[in-house]
Amino acid sequence: MPKLLRHLLKLVGVLAIVAWSLVPIGLIAMSSFKADRDIFSTSGTFAFAPTFANYEALWSRWGDFFFGLWNSFLVTLGATVLAVGVSLLAGFAYSRFASKGLQASAFFLIFIRLIPPIVITLPLFPVVNWLGLNDTHFVLIVLYATFFVSLGTVVMRTFIDQIPRELDEAAMMDGASQMQIIAKVILPMAAQGMLAVSVFVIVYAWNEFLFAFIFTTTKAKTAPLVISEMIGAVEGVEWGVLFAASTVQLVPVLAFVILMQKHLVAGLTAGAVKG
């Protein structure tokens, strides 16, 4: 193939990939700065007078949304700390100990990922109500963390496997306890793995819809749930305000994913190869 043609084909490929990934995102981000009359105008795709009207409307009329963002933040923080913490402990155990029972429980970790989340909402819904935990941050934190601890443990084990055992043995000689070894030796060196696990949990908890939809109504309502209410608002979709909300919800997690790209890739490969 002539060189020029190859370069041309490559360029077309790159443009197609960029368009596929970015047009949907870019379009709503851009349209969130458009006045209503410009949103669907053919001439104003790029040429328009930017306005903050949609953001002002979002602020004044959908205070719920910002409350939802705050709830999302709390739930994401809680779920991440919980999931990363317990995954670190379990990952350490699976990396450093071996026994029949442990092998069986490692198998159980992976097996459990086959159960669809919606199935367990049936028995959990009445129990959560009975415990008075309905519409609390707590219930979402525990659910989100639980659905990521098995992947988290597998990823942590993969990362901890790479830390030389001699280091824990040396610390043990110095009289360090198990918890001290984890805190002083393993934790600093497993930071990469912990970041990888936290990327998964953060993206999941920040964006999750199903559990939030079933288990929260007002007090612990998360941002995606508020956006879904905006889609279904009776008076028809107010596109501009909806775009502003989607953009605000998306920007932090998008920036985070791009920043953490390396860890995301490392975690995905570690998690998928092993389990």
């Binding site: 960029v18 949907p24 995102i25 964006n207 956006i227 879904s228 596109w239 989607s246 998008l254 791009i258």
Partner: peptide, 30 residues
């Protein structure tokens, strides 16, 4: 081999960060 590989990789990963709810907004709008 692609030009601007790290940047292009970030672009490809971008939809991973998007919630189902926002994705529905985007595609319904399109």
């Amino acid at each position: 081999g692609v030009p601007f590989r790290p940047l292009l990789l970030a672009i490809v990963l971008a939809p991973y960060a998007v919630s189902e709810v926002s994705a529905v907004v985007m595609w319904r709008f399109l």
